[in-house]
Design a protein around this nucleic acid. Structure first.
Lengths: 167, 167
DNA sequence: TCATGGATGTCAAAGCCCTGACATCAATGT
DNA sequence: ACATTGATGTCAGGGCTTTGACATCCATGA
């Protein structure tokens, strides 16, 4: 009556090539599929970030926007939507929340185009800096059991999967 | 004014150890973080599955439930919630949709406990079988550029991250 | 000049998902 | 027998996200 509770074996050891031919698709169990594990890991990360950010009165998309705006001030609503992998409408809702909380400011007009640049307020900067610690702690814990030299490959593989699906 | 559009370099090549010490955390760019890439890949997969399953009149959580029920008939609402990484309440909504579509049946009573076992109907089996092809095509495309011997490591790493966050 | 296409912001409706809360049921220990 | 604990199903409220649609603004080319 339980699902996905098999103890994941060999997670602290460094084994690079175990099975010469890992059967990719006619897998007997859904939980063996890459997509399933990807969703699982993503859900775990989302949950951990949710819990941690709640203490800072931030949601995950709100934190994501703050982080992007800190590195690239002046991004527009559409830019933030792409950067956080949501629709423009969702980003708009998130921005409204951040505006109401006084963490960002958005220009009401522009001399060229329609994109309205968004900037962090001082309060936004401060909130981000305190919340960032909690988020970084989570990411540290998440990757602490992954061999350092595999992290590069992991980033590349995640990128390759994204590119293959988007194209 | 764009985010995350840098062409991901080295995605078809097989490089296992590039940087001896990949700086994990004080990364200059958010997009270099594992969590960001994880979310990105997960979002891409979710979008691709959404588009593919729409032709079969199924949502991603609905398909996930069908897949789990095909392999483990008689799972309860709470079991499916755990298996699809959502809350019991969300799973309940999904099950209602599947019930209305005639793809599953759920016992109305039980002789022991409160868990009401769910089973696929013939229509549910057939719908799953046709939709499965589309989903498998997506997963094939997603991993087609990943060296086969790295897939095992990828699964293990995703598992390790999940375990580290859940514990 | 005008038309077309692409990108952006916005509104509306719907669905998904979450937390909080409550009641039910079985197992356990007192 | 009784209380406690844990798991389950369910209801209510709210937040997030999506698709669809529409109007605005710029760039491009006829």
């Amino acid at each position: 009556m339980s699902v996905g509770t098999e103890p994941s074996v060999c997670q602290n050891t460094d084994m690079e090539d175990r099975a010469p031919v890992p059967p990719p698709h006619p897998a007997k169990d859904v939980t063996e599929h890459v997509g399933y594990r990807l969703k699982q890991a993503s859900a775990a990360l989302r949950g951990a970030m949710d819990r941690a950010l709640r203490e800072h009165d931030l949601t995950v998309p709100q934190y994501s926007c703050l982080e992007l705006l800190d590195q690239q001030p002046g991004l527009s609503n559409a830019d933030l939507a792409r950067g956080t992998f949501v629709s423009r409408q969702s980003a708009n809702v998130v921005l409204r929340g951040l505006k109401d909380a006084g963490l960002i400011t958005q220009a009401t007009s522009t001399d060229h185009g329609r994109a309205l640049p968004v900037h962090l307020t001082a309060a936004g900067q401060q909130r981000l800096h305190t919340a960032r610690g909690a988020v970084y702690t989570i990411e540290e814990r998440m990757i602490k059991n992954i061999p350092a030299r595999r992290l590069t490959a992991l980033l590349a593989d995640l990128d390759a999967m994204t590119a293959a699906l988007d194209g």
